[in-house]
Simulated assay, not measured.
Amino acid sequence: MPLPASAVPPAPKENEPVEAVRESAETLALLARRRSTKVGHLSEPGPNGEQLTALLQLAGRVPDHGKLGPWRFVIIDGDARARAGAALARVIENDEGVDQSRKDGARGLFLRAPLCVMVVSATVESKKVPEWEQQLSAAAAAYNLLLGAHAMGYAGCWLTEWPAFDARARKALGLAEHERVAGFVYLGSTREPATERVRADVATRISRF
């Protein structure tokens, strides 16, 4: 049973002392066994309104050089899933080689899960903070959202797929020209338990300077 939104403590106020370092075996266990769920295995229910609000608050607690908040969240749920899919289908309907199957796939893209959060990298002009750092902050927000959902008891996965890399699709989904999709985070429950997959060998990617 997923945890209620009330299980998420309120965010501290500015300059309020915070317990930023605290031993948590549960957190370590979650990280050690964290696993995305295939989008095709997601089902109802997904986070409700209060739970999603709490998760998005957690998602925003990421490294953010300059306190710019160079990201935003777009919730695609309910009927909006079909509207967003229809917008994508219109984008590609006259493309060479696109058949009905491809159009249907675009229409159903967001219907694969109870809800999707589009995490948008919305960089701003800054003399002190490079664009790359801002993009990394958006990626961290996407992952924080996924981790928070797992900790609350929901399954999820972080995808990009073709709409993230198609300027026409980004415009159809409401992004400004300078904005990019950091990820589509699909959330819900799972039809079947996730199984472990092959992981990169961390030991071969460690060195000392």
Rank of each mutant, 00 (worst) to 15 (best):
A113T: 06
I92L: 03
M152Q: 10
L146I: 13
R107Y: 08
A29S: 08
A151Y: 03
R81W: 14
A122W: 00
R168T: 10
A122M: 00
Q100E: 15
L175Q: 09
Y186R: 03
P70Y: 02
E23Q: 08
V39G: 06
S43E: 12
A203Y: 04
V117N: 05
V124Q: 14
V21W: 08
E23P: 07
S121H: 01
G66F: 09
T190N: 10
S137N: 04
E196P: 06
Y143F: 15
D79A: 15
D201A: 05
G85M: 10
S137T: 06
I76T: 08
D99L: 08
V91Y: 06
V74E: 14
M152H: 07
G105L: 01
H65I: 12
A122P: 00
E16M: 13
L111R: 15
P17F: 09
Q135N: 00
W132P: 06
V117C: 07
G40H: 11
Y154A: 12
F73S: 05
R112E: 09
W132A: 02
T160G: 12
V39W: 05
E16P: 13
K128P: 15
A59R: 01
E196H: 08
A5E: 06
S101E: 03
A155W: 10
E93M: 08
V8K: 02
L146R: 10
A89K: 11
V185F: 02
E133H: 03
E177F: 02
C116N: 07
E50F: 13
A176D: 05
L145I: 07
T160V: 14
I76M: 07
S137A: 09
M118K: 10
E44D: 15
R199G: 04
E14H: 15
I206A: 00
K128V: 14
P45W: 13
G105F: 01
M118N: 13
F110Y: 11
V129K: 00
V39N: 08
S126K: 11
L115G: 00
F184C: 03
